[in-house]
């Protein structure tokens, strides 16, 4: 059993866009799942009343939390865009190698642009205090 030849393991397997985007979909999915705790924290703060809400707004407004939230925003947009890419595959479309690469780069660009637009709005249009 232990002497059987094995296929190349991750450490010596050259990363490709396709495999990296695939594992990133999983990683962002797990990160977003953990991030729902922030959403729950905010929701129950609103439910508890003005004092709890003010404390939550202050906590969510500190720069370290904002940095985590920015990363979480990218994870959200990535998982959303790449999820749509997966739905097209489920429908049997976009399997040509050049299409797979084109949609992959599109997903990366879209997620990064949407994250930049979102935080550009939060910091510079809505005013950076919160």
């Amino acid at each position: 059993m232990s002497n059987r030849p094995l296929s190349p393991h991750l450490q010596i397997y050259r990363p490709q866009l396709t495999s990296v985007l695939s594992i990133t979909h999983r990683a962002t999915g797990v990160a977003l799942s953990l991030g729902t705790m922030v959403l729950l924290y905010w929701l129950q703060a609103v439910a508890r009343g003005p004092e709890a809400y003010a404390a939550a707004q202050e906590f969510l407004g500190c720069w370290l939390v904002k940095l985590v939230l920015a990363g979480w925003t990218w994870a959200f947009f990535y998982h959303l865009c790449n999820g749509i890419r997966h739905l097209f595959w489920d429908a049997g479309k976009g399997f040509e190698l050049r299409h797979v690469y084109a949609s992959g780069y599109t997903v990366l660009a879209a997620a990064t642009t949407l994250t930049a637009l979102t935080w550009g709005y939060v910091l510079f249009v809505a005013g950076g205090a919160a």
Binding site: Y53, A54, F76, L80
Partner: peptide, 28 residues
């Protein structure tokens, strides 16, 4: 659930953006 979450999450994120500095009464 993925298909349902596409419009729901986009709506939620856009809605939250307009409430970045909202007070408690506004959110309620």
């Amino acid at each position: 659930t993925a298909i349902a979450l596409i419009p729901l999450t986009l709506w939620f994120v856009v809605s939250l953006l307009s409430k970045v500095h909202a007070d408690h009464a506004t959110v309620v």
